[in-house]
Design a protein around this nucleic acid. Structure first.
Lengths: 238, 238
DNA sequence: GTCTATAACCGGATAGAC
DNA sequence: GTCTATCCGGTTATAGAC
């Protein structure tokens, strides 16, 4: 799950094992960049300034990061790790679907909060179909898979029963729901993104109700045609 | 509805009325730019090259378009106009909700097809929460309103009956659905975006079924809580 | 108000020496 | 792996012509 860089860095810190010089520089650049992005914003932070503050030549930064956008990608990975860790606690405690989904979504919003302004930029580059940062791109398939896995976890530990056909697709559908909330969050300019909180609280309830509803026998035809569509699309993709 | 520039251009063509020199130049730049974007792609087309091909000084392009992105905006407006016009025909013929929605969605996909690659770029800039191009930004409120209006039209002419509470929100919900399809389309790399076609065909059916289902009395509580959420969010926004 | 011509600035990205 | 020098293209500035 962990990316090599972060892993090695962790090793350096935790066990004192010497990281190669390259790894050290890479870390230094990343720390400097993220710090400056946080202070000054993404567009306003030039690659030159990052290099200067880190005390290395501009060319060297391009040796370690293919482009300015790739610095964002590193942030992205770090954030995902944070989600994994903080949600683990919630999932140990909560046993109802509603509680678990709410807990996970809350954690995710908490984790992202400090980076709201920055996330707008991230989203902009992530939205580019060409970009490897794009959540639907093949490059980010591992990250996506891990993310969906988090929602599989949400469902697995809950007492709520559902038909097997739905159970198979539900994690992906919850992930999609979560992406919608994140999309709203990005565009939410209310103080502390309170509107997103409210939206999340209320839609979690609706989502849970919807799952129960759609599990009922009279809903079977509709459910099946939607699920059929999903599997067809997936097959077509390969 | 029409933008001034396009209107004047149309007049020039249709009635021979002289457009001002400025309007002509503006048109010329836009045509040239769109053509080159289509041939070479957005990133690969430089402002210098556009100016050169149009036979104009580079400074002049900046006189007419504040930035390279503003050329995209012009494309955006043109596309919206095209949708309005081509959908009008469909809406005159079709009388069922399914037929109308399918017709409109088909037209939209047809209109966009030549610009698939280009649309990726457009989307990238449009996704930036800061950008005036963003479909959720205040700046694009008129365009959004007009777009929602198109779906109000879809519903108005259909025989399908629905409860008044739903009727009020349905155009916006259909617009949101349409945005989802466009999002999929942007990321669809299948030949001629066939996967999007298929997705659209099948989801139109599901959407219509969903509308009928949710109009049923036993669905009233769920429907009301969703609709309540929507109006609450709107109120909060102002 | 509409445009030309030209030069400069800025910052992301790259080449090639060491 | 790191440096210096350079390229490239979006953008801005200026001064002047019609």
């Amino acid at each position: 799950m962990r990316k090599k860089t972060l892993h090695r860095k962790a090793l350096t810190i935790e066990s004192g094992e010497a990281a190669s010089k390259g790894e050290q520089t890479r870390s230094l650049i990343l720390e400097t960049a993220l710090e400056m992005f946080g202070e000054r914003g993404y567009e306003e932070t030039t690659m030159r300034a990052i290099a200067e503050k880190a005390g290395i030549a501009q060319g060297a930064t391009y040796y370690h990061f293919r482009s300015k956008e790739h610095l964002i990608q590193a942030y992205y990975e770090r954030m995902h790790e944070l989600h994994q860790e903080s949600c683990a606690e919630v999932l140990k405690k909560e046993r109802t679907l509603k509680g678990r989904l709410f807990g996970v979504m809350s954690q995710i919003l908490d984790n992202m909060e400090p980076y709201h302004q920055f996330a707008g930029i991230l989203f902009k580059t992530a939205a580019d179909p060409q970009s490897p940062l794009n959540p639907f791109s093949p490059e980010s398939e591992p990250a996506r898979r891990a993310s969906v896995e988090l929602f599989a976890e949400v469902l697995k530990g809950a007492r709520t029963k559902m038909p097997p056909d739905l159970e198979a697709e539900a994690p992906m559908l919850l992930w999609l729901y979560h992406m919608g909330i994140v999309l709203f969050w990005i565009h939410d300019s209310s103080p502390k993104q309170r509107r997103t909180r409210r939206l999340m609280e209320r839609t979690v309830e609706i989502v849970v109700r919807l799952i129960q509803l759609v599990s009922l026998p009279p809903m079977s035809p509709l459910r099946k045609s939607v699920l059929r569509l999903l599997t067809d699309l997936r097959e077509e993709a390969s």
